[in-house]
């Protein structure tokens, strides 16, 4: 328990150890710690950015999906419209065609009627003469009564 030169030895050792620690121990470990801290921070930032990107991408994909759906429904609506249009045109065309056929048929019928009438007209004077001669019991000169016969023919119309 005597105070002696150990005191000085201890102070010198102390100084040496502090110097050594300051020179060779503290800086490399501290630098490594800092670097690791930076690594971790970078990693976290990357993760954050990736998360953000993912969010954006999913938002974008949802938007695309929505757009596609809209397009599809638009196309479907167009198709339906087109189909109904086609049906409509077909209908009108059919109607027109029908009308045309009907008109044709009518014309034909008229023609038939006209022809029948013509035929009748040509034959009516003969028939009338035959009828009248039967009634009178003698021959009738067609030429003498031609004006009468013509009147009769004219009535058949």
């Amino acid at each position: 328990m005597n105070i002696n030169a150990t005191l000085l030895a201890q102070t010198i050792m102390f100084a040496l150890f502090v110097w050594f620690c300051m020179k060779f121990v503290w800086p490399p470990i501290m630098a490594a710690l800092e670097q690791r801290k930076k690594h971790i921070a970078d990693g976290l930032a990357d993760a954050e950015r990736a998360k953000h990107d993912l969010e954006l991408a999913s938002k974008r994909s949802a938007e695309l999906l929505r757009e596609a759906k809209e397009k599809v429904s638009e196309i479907v609506a167009n198709g339906e419209k087109r189909a109904s249009e086609i049906v409509e045109t077909a209908k009108t065309q059919a109607k027109v065609e029908g009308d045309r056929i009907i008109a044709g048929a009518k014309a034909e019928i008229d023609q038939e009627v006209f022809r029948a009438k013509e035929q009748l007209r040509t034959q009516v004077s003969t028939i009338a003469l035959a009828g009248a001669s039967k009634i009178l019991g003698r021959e009738i000169d067609a030429k003498a009564h031609s004006d009468l016969l013509d009147k009769l023919v004219a009535e058949i119309k």
Binding site: N2, N4, Q10, V25
Partner: peptide, 23 residues
């Protein structure tokens, strides 16, 4: 009786040894 100019060998050795091991 040695006065100031003496060394406590055990103290010096042990502190030197321990400090060196730690460093």
């Amino acid at each position: 009786a040695m006065g100031f100019w003496a060394l406590n060998l055990d103290t010096v050795l042990m502190s030197l040894l321990l400090g060196t091991i730690i460093m």
